[in-house]
Design a protein around this nucleic acid. Structure first.
Lengths: 150, 150
DNA sequence: GTTTTATTGTCAATAAAATTGACAAATATC
DNA sequence: GATATTTGTCAATTTTATTGACAATAAAAC
């Protein structure tokens, strides 16, 4: 159905292009895991980011997630209400505090991740260590490079 | 900031996880290219899919894009109004016609792609042929596998 | 060949995700 | 110290996508 791209840049472009439908299929899958957790996609993303960064201010989470600060703030508030994240005072800034996961928030995001990990393990088998390593590295580099400068 | 995942499944999971922020950074970038073209993200996606499939029914586009048929139909209608896609009668189905790009639609999506390709070329330089090939293949396999069954 | 089931198109209502605008408070820069 | 930038907060809006409902067509079952 789809012809394979011929040049290296074309192939990279095609691979990147695939990100949108891929995210769509992932989201559809992930939805099931979120069901019963009372989490929205946004909340899940912020929990994930907070887990990854361990402790972060709202602007740091905003950078990480590439979203608008107002949206992140709204989600953080929801998570605060649910006591899944907590504030830690920031000596360097009076208003801009740190956020970290509460025990229950940490348990929740870990549970969600674990369920998904189980599925991913199936796919990991299909690829070699090197392939997965390349994939991971390229995702990191692309994300990094594209989020910086013009 | 982020510690590298240790096991193969973890690394694959982390790579996949990165899809969301990556798409976000890509979208931010892509926005600029869409500016002045009067295209929405949905329209762009459908044009892209129609280019890739050359000729496709609405259900085929729906499968490809992993969206709901109603949404695809709405976007197709918009593109028909703008004369960027055209209908071709389908001998196998009275109602479900084929869609293909009009010359102007084809020119438009190719122009958008070209602008983006220019940026991607920079990144392609950074990676080897094998790395790009692996990346492309993994994106294909993941997208394929995740969109089917279970 | 007829009945039943699934697919497809269409219209409408709704929801989710994210952006934008505006303003005040805190911080950083000069 | 004055000015510019960052950050938090409240509100309105937009974009994207889903869901529900119903009729027309096609496919499957019988």
């Amino acid at each position: 159905m789809l012809k394979k791209p011929e040049s290296k840049p074309e192939m990279l472009y095609a691979g990147i292009q695939m990100t949108r439908p891929l995210l769509r299929t992932i989201s559809n899958r992930v939805e099931a895991d979120l069901e019963g957790t009372d989490l929205t996609v946004g909340q899940r993303a912020v929990l994930e980011a907070t887990l990854a960064l361990e402790q972060a201010t709202a602007p740091q989470l905003t950078d990480f997630l590439q979203l608008k600060r107002q949206f992140v703030a709204k989600v953080l508030k929801e998570l605060l209400d649910k006591e899944q994240v907590a504030q830690v005072s920031n000596p360097r800034h009076k208003r801009s505090v740190f956020y970290c996961l509460t025990p229950s928030g940490k348990a929740l995001i870990k549970k969600v991740r674990k369920a998904e990990m189980k599925r991913i393990e199936e796919f990991a088998k299909v690829f070699s260590e090197e392939e997965v390593e390349t994939y991971y590295r390229m995702q990191c580099v692309l994300n990094d490079a594209l989020s910086k400068r013009s």
